[in-house]
Design a protein around this nucleic acid. Structure first.
Length: 526
RNA sequence: GGCCCCAUCGUCUAGUUAGGUCUAGGACAUCGGAUUUUCAUUCCGGUAACGGGGGUUCAAAUCCCCCUGGGGUCACCA
């Protein structure tokens, strides 16, 4: 059997992280078996700006390195790959069902149908279709049709049957058809509805495995029945758990971003995003970008490897101990029977951990190429090509070391890019370390003189000089070091102090110390 | 409410198909300690789970039933 899987996004303008995982599992299964992965666009409800709404989805696939064998932009033997262009296939299937009386024209007033539904609900019983239109004679029907009377086409559910599937994740699942309403498969204008289009296309595309989120489980009996009515070979099913919101069991949803902001498990991600996106001039509070979307991670400076790793481990495991998994490794080992059955909350901490791990695997050059575009976009550097700039940023990145978890963390090193008067100062610590301790300002002033006098501004020389100063004065390093750092970076913590001073350079260190000392004095005078 | 799905540390999970090797393993988070000029890293160590009740069995996290809890879905959306 040739394994063919598909992912069928609706062009919504963004790629959902949960949908991405579903797509990933489909991709993995196809690749694992040397099969094909197909992208089909479910745009049966006419979208105005289809291409615009599709672009972010395709770009998410490209970013993560998931290619598709057939679909938009690449074509393929089963095209077109947009449902809106496949009307001929639906017409044919529709006619077949009508001819074999497995579907019928329903002329019932929609309000009546709705009322019946509501009555059933009120009486706490399962609603099933009235099938009143089945009483119509062929003559009545032609009459109605010639009058142009509105109707829909419903599939005639064989109520005496049961549908049973052996799901790769769920195991045996069955439904009683006597409890199912007849689903509408096409509108008055013959445009197909989701379940019908899906079945026709899955068969046409020879999809061997339908791997989708478990919220589609209730659609399955209808689809099985439709396949059978059409005489199709049934695909195999795998209903994977949906991705839940962090720390919970509820489906992760774009509409609930507001709530997620206050979710303690989610906060870390939002904060990271706010920090980075604000530098890029993106208002993250407006939720144009949020951790629900793949785009968010790309913009914040996550690595495809980090996001992918988090996605693998959300509901799937390679074995009982492997955590760091690359795409090739997953591709070689992926299996449907190691997918867990219950919904899993997106784990922000683990995501960050995976991300840090893959970041640590990068070469200096790769890190540089990840950070430069962000710096340029934020206006902190002018050009990404300038050799001096590149060299300098490379040194800053080396200094940042593992503090750089995502590329956006480069903004934490902003003291190397900002002019003296634009540094943000940690006021609380400035007070505590410089303004309040009596000796602090005098010490800084004296140290400043020595720093001015020295010719060697290498980290090693500075270490020696400052350490010697501390010893000479009989003070503790803890009394002086934070004060220096606050003066030159505005921050209470950060990368190695001496490397920082060295990289900042003598003139900037001196001018910033002057500013700091002046500041402290005027604060003391108040 | 109907139908369906799910249930192991705070979280992600291994173990459930073939019951014993599980006084339940790993990872992240957390807490403690070591290293360190701060932070971060790194290294060591600790706390921490089979939702409840019945069965079946010599033996159940694993099989069966019930309960409870959680969730998905009920469109002329996808």
């Amino acid at each position: 059997m040739i394994v063919r899987t598909r992912f069928a996004p609706s062009p919504t303008g963004y790629m959902h992280i949960g949908g991405m995982r579903t797509a990933l599992f489909n991709w993995l299964w196809a690749r694992r078996h040397g099969g094909q992965f197909i992208l089909r666009i479910d745009d049966t409800d006419q979208q105005r700006n289809r291409d615009e709404a599709l672009a972010p989805i395709l770009s998410a696939f490209r970013w993560l390195g998931l290619n598709w064998d057939e679909g938009p932009e690449v074509g393929g033997p089963c095209g077109p790959y947009f449902q809106s262009q496949r009307q001929a296939f639906y017409d044919k299937a529709l006619q077949q069902l009508l001819d074999t009386r497995q579907a019928y024209r329903d002329f019932e007033n929609p309000e009546d149908t709705k009322a019946q539904r509501e009555t059933a609900e009120k009486e706490k019983r399962q609603y099933i279709s009235s099938r009143s239109s089945l009483e119509l004679s062929d003559a009545d029907i032609s009459q109605f049709l010639s009058e142009g009377r509105a109707h829909v086409i419903r599939f005639l559910v064989p109520r005496d049957q049961k549908v049973q599937i052996e799901d790769h994740v769920r195991g045996h699942v069955e439904w009683d058809c006597s409890l199912m309403p007849d689903p509408v498969i096409a509108r008055n204008d013959r445009s197909p509805l989701y379940n019908f289009a899906t079945v026709v296309d899955d068969a046409e595309f020879r999809i061997s495995h339908v791997i989708r989120a478990e919220e589609h489980l209730p659609n399955t009996p209808v689809q099985v029945l439709l396949h059978q009515a059409l005489g199709n070979e049934l695909p195999q099913w795998a209903h994977i758990p949906y991705v839940a919101a962090p720390g919970g069991r509820e489906k992760l949803s774009k509409r609930r971003i507001g709530q997620y902001r206050t979710n303690p498990q989610f906060q870390k991600l939002f904060e990271l995003g706010d920090q980075v996106l604000s530098r890029l001039g993106i208002d993250s509070a407006a939720d144009a970008l949020s951790p629900v979307m793949v785009e968010y991670y790309r913009r914040v400076g996550f690595l495809p490897e980090g996001v992918l790793n988090a996605l693998f481990r959300l509901g799937w495991s390679l074995d009982d101990h492997t955590e760091y998994i690359s795409l090739p490794t997953a591709q070689q080992n992926f299996s449907l029977d190691r997918i867990i059955r219950s919904a899993a909350g997106l784990d922000a901490d683990k995501l960050l951990n995976f991300q840090s791990h893959w970041m640590s695997q990068l070469s200096a050059e790769e890190k540089l190429n990840g950070c430069l575009p962000l710096l340029a976009e934020s206006g902190l550097i002018d050009s990404t090509d300038d050799a001096d700039t590149r060299d300098r940023v490379k040194q800053i990145i080396a200094l940042a070391g593992d503090r750089l978890r995502v590329f956006g963390d480069i903004f934490q090193m902003d003291e190397f890019f900002l002019p003296d008067d634009q540094l943000t100062v940690d006021e609380k610590n400035f007070q505590k370390r410089i303004v309040k301790p009596e000796a602090a300002v005098d010490l800084l002033r004296e140290l400043r003189r020595r720093l001015e006098a020295t010719a060697d501004f290498s980290a090693a020389a500075l270490h020696e000089l400052i350490q010697g100063f501390v010893t000479e004065k009989g003070i503790r390093a803890g009394d002086l070091f934070p004060a220096i750092r606050l003066c030159v970076t505005g921050k209470a913590q950060g990368a190695d102090l001496f490397e920082t001073l060295s990289l900042l350079g003598q003139s900037r260190v001196l001018s910033r110390m002057d500013r700091g000392i002046g500041r402290a004095e005027s604060l003391r005078a108040e």
